[in-house]
Amino acid sequence: MTRFIEALGSRIIRFTAVMGSMLLLFAETLKELLLPPYEIKNTFKQVMEIGVKSVPVVAITAVFTGMVLALQTFTGFKRFGAEALVGTVVSLSMTREMGPVLTGLVVAGRAGAAMAAELGTMRVTEQIDALETLATNPVKYLIVPRFVSSAIVLPSLTVIADMLGILGGYAIAVWLFGMSSALYWHRAWNYLELNDIFGGLAKSAFFGAGIAIVCCHRGFYTEGGAEGVGKATTGAVVISFMTILISDYFLTAWLLK
């Protein structure tokens, strides 16, 4: 029993320490973000890396999510004759939930893992120390550009995901089930409010910032060679996923208030 409490206690201490150090890194990132000089070139590079290169994966994920949503809704709602609502279900689900969350998960898995692995490798090969010796603040040089571009790029990707998801739903509802095209659009647009879209985009900006801090933190504080880089990368993806899914609930609850 004592051993159990000991183990639990040490886990809680470690968890709190990691959370604390992430918050400190977040604070330092914000500070370095505001102080000149600004890392414009590096930020553009990261927008390419995190954003543009994620478009294909995000697009495929979104199209198929929209398709399966339409498929499930159509067949399910048909049982009580409400299949005409397919458009509404797809557009609300995509903009409010699936768009931001799936985009977040895809980017965390793709770009977040890369951030942790790259920074982790730089740490264990002393490149981060080398930056310091060349009088360059590594938080400013490495983390700020990733943070900014991730927070900007996620909402942009979410817009793409929202649109493609709704188009995917259209394909199934109209082409597969022969629903009238006008009805789909009518139902998709009429019950959609601007707040649904903006709420989703706000969430995705939060996810973007969260992914960058979590993944950069894991990478930046990597210890112990190649194995450490592996652990950092796994940890980064797992913690990012948890952060997205858990914060999604609370953000949604708060936005719906």
């Binding site: 730089m122 090969t125 002393e126 490149q127 080398a130 010796t133 009088a135 360059t136 603040n137």
Partner: peptide
């Protein structure tokens, strides 16, 4: 503090064991 430390670091050059080149 960090700012002054970076100033002092400009006096230094360091060769790392594995060279630590930015790949």
């Amino acid at each position: 503090d960090a700012k002054h430390l970076y100033e002092v670091r400009k006096k230094f050059g360091m060769l790392f064991q594995g060279a630590a080149l930015f790949d």
